[in-house]
């Protein structure tokens, strides 16, 4: 349904996204994990045709067999809402504060599908029910400020579903929410994808949420896809040093406490910080911070090396051992 082949996004000489390869089929639930500057949001914007004008895109991006990498805004308008839709991080910022949420949710239906107001209202009502909004009749008439953060996020999900998209992209959908609300939103997205046989791309830095919502995972660092595979397997036995570092840096209550001298145990960390876009190494993006660096890591780009069917990582350590 959606296929990326060597999709890159450059700002001048700096690559925000390098050679992304991805296939998304109906019903796939894919997690994209990475920290600030990893390129995960850039990837999402490319999928929505919303990459900034200053970004130079190369490679192939096809949706339903149509090449969209060079598509115009007019072409994209055909795609958005109906084929691909997005749920953003900040529900307050993404909703018009002066409009009733019902009108906001009905807008794409009126715009794209020429539904009558009554038809659109009926669909909005059933969407509100589907995403678990209580008293949907009353809620349709409310303004965003009258709702809690979790309710607003549900409205945004209903808005994204308004024209029955085949792919739903959720960019950090739970970051601004309280823990148990975040859990419920994560479960809702997962359930909607299953029930509607819709593809879900779940972008998050929250590994626990991604583990709950997705089957496959892609780990990104510095614009590169560094590791991918079934979510449970990648999180259990990471192969790329960055994925290992990221998982290790998560606070683990079991490892906490004080040692024999009364000193508190420190968390494992990844040394240094993500360099700015133009300062990333040309070879492996993780070179310079990697605990097991080889001589050629900084200059030579590691190729993506499959380790099992559907699983692999882009790391010289894997390709070296593969050849020996």
């Amino acid at each position: 349904m959606i296929e990326l082949e060597s999709l890159s996004a450059h700002f001048g000489n700096a690559a925000a996204l390098r050679d992304a390869n991805l296939q998304i089929r109906r019903g796939d639930r894919l997690g994209i994990v990475g920290e600030s500057g990893s390129g995960k949001t850039m990837l999402a914007l490319c999928l929505m045709g919303m990459a900034p004008d200053s970004a130079h895109l190369t490679g192939r991006l096809s949706i339903d067999g149509r090449d969209m990498a060079t598509a115009t805004e007019r072409d994209w308008r055909q795609m958005r809402s109906r084929r691909v839709a997005m749920v953003f991080q900040e529900p307050m910022a993404a909703l018009n504060p002066l409009r009733r949420v019902g009108d906001t949710v009905m807008e794409p239906m009126l715009l794209h599908e020429n539904l009558s107001r009554a038809e659109a209202r009926a669909r909005a009502l059933s969407l509100f029910e589907e995403v678990g909004i209580l008293n949907p009749e009353q809620r349709l008439r409310q303004f965003p400020h009258e709702m809690s953060g979790g309710q607003r996020q549900r409205v945004l999900i209903a808005l994204a579903l308004a024209c029955n998209p085949a792919l739903l992209i959720a960019d950090e959908p739970t970051t601004a929410l309280d823990a148990n609300v975040a859990l419920r939103i994560t479960d809702l997205l997962q359930r909607l994808a299953r029930e509607r046989d819709m593809a879900l791309v779940f972008i998050s830095h929250d590994l626990a949420a991604v583990a709950r919502a997705t089957q496959e995972i892609v780990v990104m660092y510095g614009g590169d896809m560094v590791e991918r595979g079934p979510t449970a397997e990648v999180l259990a036995t990471p192969q790329h040093p960055y994925t290992k570092g990221l998982l290790g840096a998560r606070p683990d209550p079991a490892e906490a406490g004080r040692d024999a001298n009364g000193k508190r145990r420190r968390l494992p960390t990844i040394p240094g910080s993500v360099p700015p876009l133009h300062g990333l190494p040309q070879g492996c993006r993780f070179a310079g911070r990697c605990p097991v660096e080889l001589a050629h890591c900084a200059d030579q780009r590691p190729v993506f090396t499959p380790t099992e069917p559907g699983r692999g990582a882009a790391c010289h350590l894997l390709s070296e051992t593969g050849h020996d």
């Binding site: 920290e35 840096a249 508190r264 420190r266 494992p268 990844i270 910080s273």
Partner: peptide
Amino acid sequence: LDVSVQAQILNLLMDLQD
């Protein structure tokens, strides 16, 4: 903060405390 940065800051707080 991102997870890996968060770990660095938490360690810093523990260092300062010690």
